[in-house]
């Protein structure tokens, strides 16, 4: 079952079991809902901005292991990044889970998000991986209040 191991990497299982930044952020500048009506994954994401930097990202809610781990990893990765850098990371993450990443074969430098490369082998799960990222991307670049991946 090499495929399953590729999907459910240690990092993903760990972040699913112990999601980081899994809390309400009382002084958030942006609060956005991420909902996949197909499977019922539902998260609320909180973003605190400091000028053009993302000072903090937290989240609450429930969903599958892929969506939860993805939100958790994202929260750790985006914290402290400039919005411009965050946009670049969103782009790389999208390419990665869709199997469209054209960068170096060695994904080491991508850090924890490299764990999501295996998702590309499971087309029905790509939406799970993207859900929270899509929501936060919308939140920092516009005034979207609810984001679905439909």
């Amino acid at each position: 079952m090499a495929d399953l191991q590729a999907l459910y990497q240690e990092i993903i299982l760990d972040h699913n079991k112990n999601p980081r930044n899994f809390r309400v952020l009382p002084d958030a500048d942006r609060v956005v809902d991420a909902y996949n009506p197909l499977c019922g994954d539902h998260y609320t994401l909180y973003v605190r901005l400091d000028g053009d930097r993302i000072a903090d990202v937290t989240f609450q809610g429930s969903g599958c292991a892929i969506s939860k781990a993805s939100a958790s990893v994202m929260s750790t990765v985006l914290k402290g990044k400039s919005i411009a850098d965050a946009q670049k990371i969103f782009e790389v993450f999208h390419q990665l889970v869709r199997g469209e990443f054209k960068g170096e074969r060695d994904l080491e430098h991508l850090g924890k998000i490299a764990a999501f490369a295996g998702v590309s082998e499971f087309p029905t799960r790509v939406k799970c991986a993207i859900l929270a990222w899509h929501a936060v991307r919308g939140a920092v670049s516009a005034n979207e209040q609810t984001v679905t991946t439909e």
């Binding site: 079952m1 495929d3 399953l4 999907l7 459910y8 079991k17 197909l38 499977c39 019922g40 994954d41 429930s62 969903g63 599958c64 292991a65 892929i66 939860k68 499971f122 029905t124 799960r125 799970c128």
Partner: peptide, 23 residues
């Protein structure tokens, strides 16, 4: 317990077992 139906469905599928997950 602690495992989302969507993940159950994906893993069962790898064993050839087709079930529905969702609402």
């Amino acid at each position: 317990d602690g495992i989302h139906p969507h993940d159950i469905g994906t893993i069962l599928d790898q064993y050839g077992v087709a079930v529905r997950t969702g609402h």
